[in-house]
């Protein structure tokens, strides 16, 4: 047995995210791990995954990972390039996009997301970049996957600012607000995968990554974390996935 892990935490997160994507999906991709995951899926089990970047590139097929959401390679390889008003009004708003990826500076038990400020809005401790496309991605994609590293600064009892609505204050709230998509259906972290409990919509630990103890996840969650009765261990990345992933990231 070796003591060196075969893969990094980022690789575990990326592969786990990629596995949730299927070939017929249209996927709104953000830069960083989501883009890596989508590109990995397209090169493995989901060759027809329709990747959409908010710069207006629909059906982009980059041969290398883009470093921004608007790299030239995305425009050159896209099925079509549309304006920014069009991407939001014609493509996102009517529900044409199956999956959206979001990150978070803070996330609460109902997967509400803060990317705006830490502290008070008018006198913030830390001013973050803000909303971008996230509020409408969270509202209108059929489903949302959140990818975020797990620690107690990020997984908080209550977010300082609701930039993007997850499940609001719990069951029924999205319907009440008239939000058309299902909201966050999975939160993928470096420790495991959390999913909203079907009745309450509270984020519940659905699987832990290999070698992670439930207590590790509890210790880094700012609320009393519930654990699914059928808690699973996330499947490890296989050799083929790791090989394609590393060819993408150059590691």
């Amino acid at each position: 047995m070796t003591t060196t892990p075969r893969y990094t935490a980022d690789e575990m997160m990326t592969v786990t995210a990629a596995r949730f994507l299927t070939t017929e999906m249209a996927c709104f991709v953000g830069i960083g791990l989501p883009s890596t995951a989508a590109n990995l899926a397209r090169r493995t089990h989901a060759p027809n995954l329709w990747m959409i970047y908010e710069s207006g590139t629909l059906g982009a097929k980059p041969d290398t990972l883009p470093l921004s959401i608007g790299d030239g390679i995305l425009a050159e390889t896209a099925d079509t390039v549309v304006s920014v008003p069009e991407i939001f009004n014609y493509w996102l708003q009517p529900g044409r996009i199956d999956i959206g990826f979001l990150g978070a500076a803070q996330i609460d038990r109902y997967a509400n997301i803060n990317t705006t400020v830490i502290g008070d809005y008018s006198d913030p401790k830390v001013r973050l970049p803000g909303a971008g496309g996230a509020p409408e991605i969270a509202a209108s994609c059929r489903e949302v996957i959140v990818i975020v590293r797990q620690n107690s600064r990020t997984f908080v009892e209550s977010v300082d600012f609701v930039t993007s609505v997850g499940h609001g204050k719990g069951a029924g709230q999205r319907e009440q607000l008239g939000l058309t998509g299902l909201g966050p259906t999975r939160v993928i972290t470096d420790l495991g995968v959390l999913e909203p409990e079907p009745r309450t919509r509270e984020l519940t630990l659905a699987s832990v990554h290999p070698g992670v103890a439930v207590d590790d996840v509890r210790a880094t969650t700012g609320w009393e974390l519930q654990v699914a009765p059928d808690l699973a261990v996330t499947a490890e990345p296989d050799e083929a996935e790791l090989s394609v992933l590393r060819s993408l990231t150059g590691s």
């Binding site: 908010e54 920014v84 008003p85 939001f88 009004n89 996102l92 708003q93 909303a131 971008g132 496309g133 996230a134 509020p135 409408e136 509202a139 209108s140 609701v162 930039t163 993007s164 609505v165 609001g168 709230q173 607000l177 008239g178 939000l179 058309t180």
Partner: peptide, 27 residues
């Protein structure tokens, strides 16, 4: 949000005083 800003420009370009969208709800 991006959708809000984009629509604000669309309204400006269209010569109408405001734009309508599904957005910001609950934030």
């Amino acid at each position: 949000s991006h959708a809000g800003m984009a629509n604000r420009y669309v309204a400006g370009a269209s010569g109408i005083p405001f734009a309508v969208l599904r957005g910001y709800t609950g934030t």
